[in-house]
Simulated assay, not measured.
Amino acid sequence: MGLPIPVRMTVIRLSGGALLLHSPTPFDVRLNDDLEQLGRIEHLIAPNSGHWTFVREWQAHHPDVVTWAVPGLRERRQVRRSGIRLNHDLGASAPDEWREEIEQIIVPGLAGFAEVVLYHKASRTMVLTDLVQNFEPEKLPRLVRPLAHLAGVTGGRAPFYLRTIVKLKGLEAKAAAERLIALGPERIIFSHGQWFEEDGTARLRKSLEWLLD
């Protein structure tokens, strides 16, 4: 709605040197140059129905990049009209390209929502998108702060509307949340707000208590 919202892209370097860009943010030449010093940008991930809009910018600068999408994203009318190229849909298990290094879990919801969660085994780091949000009020416009508080996104949870459409998926969504906890992550990175640098499992359990109970 025209309001500035902090957003984060997460980058994973695979063992072979390839970079995986999860939830790409707007393309920036300087950022791109820095990333290319770390490895080859080979994979883009659109992890849920709201985090795909900047993928095309990265595709334009990396025409050979492979783009992976959450199930159902390519059916959305806005996505079809955008001209974005989606090479593969992500499944319940990770593709061969990162199966040995990253666990992959899909958390389902109603209304076509799903979110792909990645767990990097070696670093014990879990990468979410919107299932946990922890906005820092001082970084939001003053008029937005009360709304963010009411939505519940300043306390390390998903916004109310998202909790609703995931909760209504019932046992399937609860089972996915239990799998996330069972992996025992130390760090939790997500797209909005201050991420959990330590005590990840305990903090994730508290963030998802609305779904686990």
Rank of each mutant, 00 (worst) to 15 (best):
R80Y: 03
L31G: 05
T10R: 15
T53N: 04
K174S: 13
I102G: 05
D33Y: 10
P26T: 09
Q78S: 14
P185G: 12
R124T: 04
H22A: 08
R74F: 12
R203G: 01
E209V: 08
S191V: 02
V127D: 09
L35K: 10
Q133N: 06
Q104P: 12
A176G: 05
P141Q: 09
L35D: 10
T129A: 12
A60H: 02
A177F: 12
E101K: 11
T53I: 14
W195R: 00
R74W: 14
P24Y: 11
E103G: 02
S49E: 08
E209D: 14
K174M: 11
V7Q: 03
G2F: 08
G50W: 08
L143M: 05
L90F: 11
V7T: 12
L21Q: 00
E178L: 14
P95C: 06
E172K: 10
I188P: 10
A202K: 08
I84G: 05
I5Y: 01
V11E: 02
G156V: 10
E198R: 10
P6L: 12
D213T: 09
K167C: 09
R205Y: 01
E186R: 12
A175L: 02
T154A: 02
A158S: 13
M126W: 03
T129I: 00
V153P: 04
P159Y: 12
V153H: 06
E103F: 13
L171D: 15
R145P: 13
E136C: 06
A94V: 09
E197S: 15
Q133V: 06
V166G: 02
D213K: 13
R203M: 14
H43V: 04
F190G: 00
G39T: 11
Y119S: 04
H51A: 05
W58P: 08
